[in-house]
Simulated scan of single mutants.
Amino acid sequence: MTDEPTQRPLSPWDLPTGHPGITFLTGKTALFALADDPRFSYCLYVPRRHSPDGPPSPLVIAVHGTRRRVETVRDAMADFAERHNCVLLCPLFPAGIAGPNDVDSYKLLSPDGFRADEVLLSMVEEIALRWHVRTDRFHLHGFSGGGQFAHRFAYLHPDRLASLSVGAPGRVTLIDPTKTWWQGTADMEKHFGVQVDPAALRDLPVQFVIGAQDTGTADFAPVDSLGLAPAGRNRIENVNALRANWQDHGVRSRLDTVADVAHDQFGVLPVVREFLAAHLAR
């Protein structure tokens, strides 16, 4: 690439064959700051067959957990992206954005701070300036803290999703007009300008995924800073509570419980890949 300022982000096909800058824009990319808000960044896996010709590539987004191992998540999904010729986007929501002790705001979409959902949509629009990707709908997977983000994102933007995979959330937001955010959806319009629409989720392919041994509570907060308690005593109970709540509102889903796996994103990834592959094929 060049050190000269440019009005348009360079694409891999803007560079001559053999240019070293291509290695930053294909395969396992560098981490890029988001132009709209450089506090946030993202990396991608861009398959070798990616080109500006033909239909835009499907986009898969994988959202990190609390420890923010964003490049590790990307690397674990790289072979999948290559095999299915999809672009993989892994956003980074750093800790400390909403205060020195903040680790959770991105999961809750932070109605009183930054809007993590809007940050992700800005990333999607930005990468479309550089790579040939579909932006109207994408496939979203999140695990642990990322699973919290993913199902709440679905409440706000169901029309942007082609499929949804929710893994092992430590807290869940139920479709419940009697409870306020984040436990329920009573004040969604106040915080986000939209109301939850279960009908918009009914045609969305949904996977819930959890390790059969994910019953540990060492890093499972019994209440949050507002004194709000999660739906269940552990992540398995949370997943089941959320799935049952959605089912009560006509939203169908599949539940994958992975034997001999505890709270381990990489342990459940095989069934996540299977789910995503089926819906990429559609």
Rank of each mutant, 00 (worst) to 15 (best):
P55S: 11
N234G: 06
R254A: 08
L269V: 07
S163Y: 09
G54E: 13
D136R: 13
H151I: 01
N234A: 12
N240V: 05
R115S: 14
L10I: 10
Q148K: 03
P5E: 13
F93A: 02
L108Y: 11
V119I: 15
P270M: 11
H151P: 07
G54Y: 12
P9E: 12
S165R: 00
D102T: 12
V194L: 11
R83P: 00
D260G: 06
S144H: 00
P158Y: 11
L92A: 06
D219Q: 11
F80C: 02
P9Q: 08
L92D: 07
V194A: 14
F80H: 00
V239P: 05
S253Q: 06
I97E: 05
L44F: 09
T17H: 14
R252H: 11
A162G: 08
F208G: 04
R115M: 04
G227I: 11
I97A: 05
A241V: 02
D260S: 12
I22Q: 12
N234E: 05
Y106I: 00
L10V: 10
A154Y: 09
F208K: 01
S144I: 07
P16R: 12
Y106T: 02
L255A: 09
L164N: 06
R282T: 15
G147Y: 03
D37K: 06
Q207K: 02
A259V: 10
V268P: 01
L129F: 04
W182Y: 11
D187M: 02
H132G: 08
S105E: 02
G170N: 04
N240L: 14
E189V: 02
L255M: 07
D203Y: 00
L204H: 02
R273G: 12
A281V: 05
D219T: 14
T217I: 15
V46T: 12
V261T: 10
P56R: 03
A78N: 04
G193H: 10
C86A: 15
D14Y: 04
S122L: 09
M77K: 04
D104E: 14
R134T: 14
T215A: 13
H151K: 03
T23H: 11
G21C: 05
L88V: 08
T217D: 07
R235L: 08
S122Q: 11
D203F: 00
L15M: 12
K107E: 11
D53E: 14
